[in-house]
Every structure is written in structure tokens, then in C-alpha cells.
Design a protein around this nucleic acid. Structure first.
Length: 569
DNA sequence: GCCGTTTTCGGCCCGACTGTTTTCAGTCG
């Protein structure tokens, strides 16, 4: 299925280039829709191509079908190649700066001949940007701030992109006859939200190292080899993500994975802790990395510390005193409380989403469409919401197995008012409030909006509380500490939005909030039933935040959840 | 570039906010 991601990625890049080149906006949108629709496919696009069924994909017609064929046979397509000659690659990166869109990038390119972030930064510092039509000092400031953000990201990619690619490469390697074992290491094994390189360690007899590294570099996803030595290869993939493969002899395998999982800070802390004792790395007879790691920790008098906790945030002391928390697991979750269907901007019918949730084994879900303010998402009016409540009532009567809670994701408007009146919100089982506008307001104003939502007794959850988009948008500036304190007081849950684009709250916020006494909801915010599986990203974020299942409202049994929803606050 | 019980041409989710303006273009969700 990685081919699907590649084609989707190429079409998305094409759309970026077309926009900068000033192509027709609807044509651009056709590429974007095609990209999304291919990324969401649950069939392999190569299979569809071979069966001549490409045009069954929504948004793919004759032209794009031909281009997909070109990509699958040659790795690229001529329209894209021509665009790349016309539009400097650096301009596409500028699109990632908040506030800069294709028109501005084009104007900067044409007016000043700037083609890279470095040149752009210099021009902004020299106050040359404000000479362009429609741009002033705030645009310059925004550019400089945006460049800082990109630097801070340091080329890391969201785990939602890295993990599927890593999983594919891992199973490819696992299938090679010379490979006796292969594991992730590094930040990916620790489930960090942003991942630098994908680290893989393979257990291979020394005589086969060269063969395995060579075979790895030949994989079609690999674009170029950046560094290579007898035990190691650093390669760049088609998606712009780097993979580092280390091959080690079987007897070194577990220890290498353990060490390379890091984090550096955890290992330093471990070495400080172990200064006067000796970790036993020679333990034998283990059948897995985690079993080996368990034995090593045990030799130091420590409880097992799972990879996602290895950040030097107090885990060693806790392991020494036997006070590591029992972390929430995917299997603890009994439902998903933030879902969209085609009643607003989701892709599936209500019934399809309900079926998918039942197949997943959930006891309950909540349907929470957008409210009317978000016209672009076909947000629900009061009337439509009440119609949906009726429709859900019918589903519940016909499907005793799974309880579907009625709900709404109501917008917190620019002035702190909610987008629907209280008497309407009172009609549904669960109310999520969230911000989708006015991200650049004064911090005090954003804080006030969030506090107003928390203090509304109808509001049960505040979704994606900081508004960040991973690697794309910083959180909005506001007083998160005060918001969390207030949420504890009003007994409102904050969300860990499990969408790999968001992961918001993040791990550290989730930890802080639950330590203050707050409760969380871990939700996918799925707009497509296939995205229900994203829940793993949210659960891992919670685990990295030391969260146990009792702090997660959708890990509670239905009767306890209902009781909580009816709490007076 | 896609799509069609409004169609094979002429549509294609739209409204708020921001920063730049002196009435609006560009960006964003």
C-alpha cells in the first residue's frame, strides 16, 4: 500500500507546484482530491491499475488514470517533471510557512528572485519583503517566525507518515532469508510524535551483511543512498524520509536495539543510576527484545520501562520504587467519542461508521459532526442536528449491540460564544467544543474563549485543545495551564486527538493534566471509518504521558460514562 | 481535471479573518 502513498504524495506535490505556477484552481483541486482519494484507498493501486479499474476511484478520470500508469511504470510523470523544471523546489517548502500561500510565494519569487528558505530569511531580515505589493512588516515577521518553526522541526516528519513506511520496510527486511530478526529503534520505537530518521536494526550473520544492505538499497522505495559503511546504510526514500538500517550479528542484536532505542537522555540517566552497580547485558536465552530489556532492567533493580517512557522524565526513579503507572492500552478503550460522517464532512454514511465501530468491538461511540459555523465542512444547523438525533435513535433501537451516543462538535466562535444555543446542546448526549478560527487572536482572548467553553455545563470535552498541526502549525498562543486548571474544576475532559496530523494534547500536556486530576478522552476524530485505527497514535501519546486507563473517559464502562456525562458542573 | 436523473459543457463546498489597504486579495479551515 506504500505505492498508494507515493502516488498520493506526487499528486499533492503536483498540486503545490501548479498553484505556485498559477494554474487553474479547479484543476489544482482535482489533483488534491485525487491525492486524498488514493491515500484513502483500501485496495492496492497497482492491483487496480492491472485490472484497469483506476477510474473506479472517485476523482480519477481518463487523464489522471494515465498519469497513475506513468507513475507506476516509470516512478514519475512528465507533467510533474516539467513543472519541477519550471518551479524551483524551494518554493514548495515556503508554502509550509503559516500565512504564505501560493500567491505570495509566487510574488516573492517573481519580485525578488528568491528560490530558497535561506534567501527568504535574509530578505525578510533586510526588510525587503515589505517592498512587494500587499506585504508589510507583519508578513516579514510571520516569515521569520515560520522559518524558526521549520528549523525547530529539523527535518523531522510526523509519526503518521514514518510508521507506515517503517512497517513496510520492516516486513520487507523480515522476509529476506538472511535476516533473522528486525526491529525498530530510535524515536519511532518510542512513538515520538515527530520522527527524525526511521531506525531499523537487523540481525544478520556477518557473512551476509553486505548482501542485506545491498538488497535494502535496491528496494523501490529507496531514492538514494546517503551514507554507507559495512554495517550501516542511511538512505533517502521517495517520501523524503530517511531510513537508517544497521545490521548486527545475532548475538549483538537485542543489545543494539535496546541501545539504539534511546533516548540519549534516558541512557545517560540510566548510566548515572547504574554507576555503582553493573547492568547485566550478557543475559541469554531471551526470545525477544523486550524480554532481554526486562532482564537488563531487572539486573539493575528496576521494573521494566517500556520504550515510550524512555525520555528521562522520571521513569528510572519510578521504576526503582515500583511506582510506574499501569499505562492505558488500545484494548482498554471501549469507544471513540469524536467521529464524523457524511452528515457533515465525513466520507461514510452514519450506518457504515456504526458498523465499523461494532466490528472493532467498541461498546459505544459518539457521532459528533461539525456545527453550522464551519460551512466548508457542511456543519449542522439545529434542525439537521435534531434530525440526526432521530436517525441515531432509530439505529440504537435496531442495534442493541452498540450504543451510539448523539453529539456535536460545536465551534467556539471568535467571541467565545458557542455556535449552537444551550437548549440545543442539551438535546444531545455528548458535546465537544473546539476552535477552528481566530488562531492568531491575542492569547488572552483565546484563553477566554476556551474558558467560556469549559464553563458551559453542556460541554463535556474540549477537542484538540492547543490547535497544533504536527509539522504544519504551531499551537495557538494561550494560557494552557489555566485552561487545564479550569477543566479540572469544571470536570470537563480534554481530548487527546489521535489523528496523526494533530496528537493534541501532546504527551507532556496529557501527563500534566492528569496529574492535576483531569480526565482525558482519546478520540480519532475520524472522518472515514478506516481512520478508526488511528486510535493507536492517541493511546501511545497518552502512554508517553504516563496516563493510566482510569483517567480516560472512553476506557470507562458505558454506565460510568453516562453517569459522568450527566454530572452536574 | 472531474463529473453528470440539472449535464458532454459549465459547473466545481464558502465564509471569516488578517494584513494590507482606502476597498480588497490572500489565506485558512
Amino acid at each position: 500500500m506504500m505505492k498508494n502513498m507515493e502516488v498520493a504524495w506526487l499528486f499533492d506535490q503536483t498540486a503545490d507546484l501548479m498553484e505556485i505556477a498559477g494554474d487553474d484552481a479547479y484543476r489544482v483541486r482535482a489533483y488534491r482530491q485525487a491525492s486524498r482519494s488514493i491515500a484513502d484507498l483500501d485496495e492496492d493501486i497497482e492491483t487496480l491499475y492491472q485490472q484497469r479499474r483506476l477510474q473506479e476511484i472517485p476523482g480519477i478520470g481518463k487523464e489522471l488514470g494515465k498519469k497513475i500508469g506513468e507513475i507506476l511504470t516509470t516512478g514519475s510523470f512528465s507533467f510533474y517533471d516539467r513543472l519541477r523544471e519550471k518551479v524551483p523546489a524551494g518554493l514548495v517548502i515556503m508554502l509550509e510557512l503559516p500565512g504564505l500561500g501560493p500567491k505570495s510565494v509566487r510574488s516573492i519569487y517573481q519580485g525578488l528572485g528568491i528560490t530558497s528558505l535561506e534567501e527568504l530569511e535574509q530578505a525578510a531580515r533586510e526588510k525587503k519583503i515589505r517592498g512587494l505589493p500587499g506585504m508589510g512588516s507583519k508578513t516579514e515577521l510571520g516569515i521569520l517566525r515560520g522559518i524558526e518553526m521549520l528549523k525547530g522541526r529539523g527535518g523531522r516528519v510526523p509519526i503518521g507518515l514514518a510508521l507506515p513506511l517503517g512497517e513496510e520496510m520492516r516486513s520487507y527486511l523480515a522476509g529476506l532469508p538472511e535476516v533473522q530478526g528486525v526491529e525498530f529503534a530510535g524515536s519511532l520505537r518510542r512513538w515520538k510524535d515527530l520522527v527524525g530518521d526511521i531506525d531499523l536494526v537487523a540481525s544478520v550473520a556477518e557473512t551476509d551483511w553486505e548482501k542485506v544492505l545491498g538488497g535494502f538499497a535496491q528496494h523501490p522505495r529507496i531514492k538514494k543512498v546517503l551514507e554507507a559503511d559495512p554495517q550501516r546504510a542511511l538512505v533517502q526514500t521517495v517520501l523524503g524520509v530517511n531510513i537508517e538500517l544497521i545490521v548486527v550479528s545475532p548475538r549483538e542484536f537485542f543489545l543494539t536495539v535496546f541501545r539504539d532505542t534511546g533516548s540519549k537522555a534516558h541512557w545517560s540517566a540510566l548510566e548515572r543510576y547504574a554507576a555503582d552497580r553493573r547492568p547485566d547485558f550478557s543475559v541469554g536465552g531471551c526470545s525477544s527484545v523486550s524480554e532481554f530489556e526486562k532482564m537488563v532492567y531487572l539486573s539493575l533493580g528496576l521494573e521494566y520501562i517500556v520504550p515510550e517512557l524512555r525520555e528521562d522524565r522520571g521513569e528510572i526513579d519510578a521504576a526503582a520504587s515500583g511506582t510506574l503507572p499501569a499505562l492505558v492500552e488500545v484494548s482498554d478503550l471501549r469507544g471513540d467519542l469524536h467521529l464524523h460522517t457524511d452528515w457533515s464532512d465525513g466520507v461514510n454514511q452514519l450506518e457504515v461508521m456504526v458498523d465499523a465501530a461494532r466490528r472493532r468491538g467498541y461498546e459505544y461511540i459518539a457521532i459528533t459532526e461539525h456545527s453550522k459555523f464551519l460551512t466548508i465542512s457542511r456543519g449542522l444547523t439545529e434542525e439537521r442536528l435534531l434530525q440526526q438525533v432521530e436517525a441515531i435513535g432509530k439505529i440504537n433501537r435496531e442495534n442493541p449491540g452498540l450504543r451510539v451516543l448523539t453529539g456535536i462538535e460545536v465551534d467556539i466562535l471568535g467571541d467565545g460564544q458557542l455556535d449552537l444555543p444551550d437548549h440545543v446542546l442539551a438535546e444531545v448526549d455528548l458535546v465537544i467544543a473546539s476552535i477552528h478560527s481566530g488562531f492568531r487572536q491575542e492569547p488572552e482572548r483565546i484563553t477566554r474563549r476556551l474558558l467560556a467553553a469549559l464553563e458551559n455545563p453542556n460541554v463535556d470535552i474540549v477537542a484538540h485543545p492547543t490547535g497544533r498541526m504536527l509539522a504544519r502549525r504551531e499551537p495557538y498562543a494561550f494560557d494552557l495551564e489555566l485552561v487545564m486548571r479550569t477543566a479540572v474544576q469544571t470536570r470537563t475532559a480534554l481530548e487527546i486527538n489521535a489523528s496523526p496530523d494533530r496528537l493534541d494534547l501532546n504527551d507532556e500536556h496529557a501527563r500534566r493534566f492528569t496529574e492535576m486530576g483531569g480526565v482525558l478522552a482519546i478520540n480519532t476524530d475520524a472522518h472515514d471509518c478506516r481512520r478508526l485505527d488511528d486510535i493507536r497514535f492517541g493511546v501511545m501519546t497518552a502512554r508517553r504521558g504516563w496516563v493510566s486507563a482510569d483517567r480516560v473517559i472512553n476506557a470507562w464502562p458505558l454506565d460510568k460514562l453516562l453517569e459522568w456525562l450527566n454530572r452536574g458542573d
